[in-house]
Computed example of a mutant assay.
Amino acid sequence: MNTTPEPVALRLLDREFHIACAPEELEGLLESAQFLDRKMRELKANARTPGFDRIAVLAAISITHELLQTRKQKQQADPELTEDLALLRRKLEQALAAHVK
């Protein structure tokens, strides 16, 4: 597998950026850039001062907030899932034990 980074051109709000990227990460990078571009365009449409730097910072804050909220939800769900799986395991063990007798 070739992991030598290659230059990739990305467009954000009609500006072109060149980023080095390993070939196996290209698809994820392009998807990320498209997501960021959509978020920046959404913010630009609603911004009073639509400077590129300001839009980029607002997009970064917005995306980071979404990421942290998702992580928090996952952390809250993990213990519940572990508890549910433990209960299910106990029920299965009880059912198997009753069936073996």
Results as ranks from 00 to 15, higher is better:
L13F: 06
P7M: 10
A59E: 00
R48T: 14
K44I: 09
T3D: 06
L88R: 03
A45V: 12
P79C: 03
E6Y: 00
A22L: 04
R15Q: 07
E42T: 13
T70D: 13
E93V: 12
I61A: 13
P7W: 00
E27Q: 10
E42L: 08
N2Q: 06
N2P: 07
A86E: 08
G51Y: 10
A33L: 05
T64E: 04
R48V: 11
Q34S: 13
E6G: 00
D53T: 14
N46L: 13
R11D: 09
Q69L: 12
L13P: 02
A45Y: 08
L92W: 00
E31F: 10
L68M: 11
A56K: 05
T4C: 02
D53M: 13
T4N: 04
R11E: 10
S32Q: 07
A20G: 12
D37H: 06
D84H: 08
D84V: 04
E6P: 00
L88T: 07
P5E: 03
L36W: 01
L96G: 02
R11N: 12
L96S: 04
D53F: 10
H65A: 09
R41H: 14
V8M: 01
A86F: 02
L13I: 05
A20C: 04
R90Y: 05
P23A: 02
F17D: 05
K91I: 11
L58N: 08
L96V: 10
K101I: 08
E16F: 00
G51P: 05
G51M: 10
D14Q: 12
A59F: 02
E24H: 06
A33G: 10
G28D: 10
A20S: 12
V8N: 04
E80V: 09
I55C: 03
K74C: 12
G28K: 11
A20E: 09
L96Q: 11
Q76C: 07
H65K: 07
H18M: 14
H65P: 01
L43D: 02
A47I: 01
V100Y: 12
E16G: 08
